[in-house]
Amino acid sequence: MSVPLTLLGLLEREPSHGYDLKRDYDAFFGRGKPLPYGQVYATLGRLARDGKVVAGEAEPGDGPERKRYVITEAGVTEFETWLTEPVAPEPTLQTVLFTKVVLALMLGRDAGQYLDTQRAAHMRRMRELTELRRTGALVDALLADHGLFHLEADLRWIDLTAARLDALAEAVRP
């Protein structure tokens, strides 16, 4: 799960304070593991250093820091590149697939196209594993089976999600 890229995605939606970013991150992606404030500001600091975001002037108010962050052109490019690339089809990456779909829907991007590209990448990996299963030793076949069942589970999720994109989009858009 990539915190910097997810924060960039949330900033692509609209310029935000660190507090807003944390709140939305926790609501959509935290899943019971809230992002510590320290990590939010450290991440924003690194993104600013690398020219992916710029911080506005400190605003008066209560609380630790009141700066509004704005994504830069370089930040948008990095985020867009990440968003459109399929994740390497390995087990345990479900959370990244999930994050990409939710962000794409939130930003009005083509989540269906992303899911199609991901499905093709998954199928390609399944073909490789099927070939390994056919031609390899028993131990290889056993490992290939393990991978195949996990990828199949991902694909079922991809299909189900693709079938419900409209309803999901309504649920995540402000």
């Binding site: 399929p86 199609d116 093709a120």
Partner: peptide, 11 residues
């Protein structure tokens, strides 16, 4: 029907 190729996609 759509045919998709995963060529060029990270393995």
């Amino acid at each position: 029907a759509t045919s998709l190729s995963a060529e060029g996609v990270a393995p």
